[in-house]
Amino acid sequence: MISGKLISAICYVLFAPLIGGLIDGIGRKISARMQRRVGPPLLQPFYDLGKLLHKDPVHVAPSQNFFMMSYLFFIVMTGGMMFLGMDILMCMFVLSTAVMFLYFAAVVTGSHYSAIGASRELLQMVAYEPCVLLTCVAFYLVRGSFETAEIIKGDVSPIVYLPGVFVAFIFILTIKMRKSPFDISTSHHPNQEIVKGITSEIGSRNFGIYTLAEWYETVFLLGMVALFIINSNPWSILAAVVVIALVYFLEILIDNTSARVKSDVMIKVSWAVTLVAAGFNILVLIFFLG
């Protein structure tokens, strides 16, 4: 059993960039089709990454290299811990640590644009963190454990007990993936009011590392979505893949049909959704289970 967990964690470290890059490529293709364009080839994200890593490494401050490597390291660790079946609350704390390194990589440069982007990244954290914590608590209420290895073991999928929490989690997923309307700290699309926000002063090679970390993070986050679906029945994994595909499509649809909102609107809306959907769900759960 332990070796099984280890294999899944190693698979994550090795293959998450491939899957994450492919998901990114599919996303860009679907976006293009939604805009009636042909769109880039499916493997475009890999071409981009290859190019970024081949360019002359420039950094605005030498410490940026350290911060970006740490960012990547902690993101990989987050996903690795989840696939090792470890404590999900711990994963989320490690993820927050990773974001802190990204924050520092942006603020050491002294550029206004990246400083604004960095402070907006913190605001994004403020917006999604309550929901993330409530999600962990909800899993604990359903399964009696924070460990992902235990969460996937029940007879019934957690989503049956946690529809409200699921809705809230999907909502904050848009913030976490930095997709429109919540792409306020940095944007996948160019020429926004703060250039590229938190990634403005990140040079080519470090931007490649950032891209890589983003792919790891995508796989981790979609893995979190899968936790809602997977139960002791092996077929539930297939169901989880279908749900992930639907969720990702929804994210792209929202990304393409909405304009960026202000940060205060983001915090208000995300807290409201968290409180109403996840909070109410958990109250009901406590009432019936407790």
Partner: peptide, 8 residues
């Protein structure tokens, strides 16, 4: 891609 960032 039309990027607004000279560093990238």
């Amino acid at each position: 891609i039309n990027t607004g960032d000279p560093l990238q």
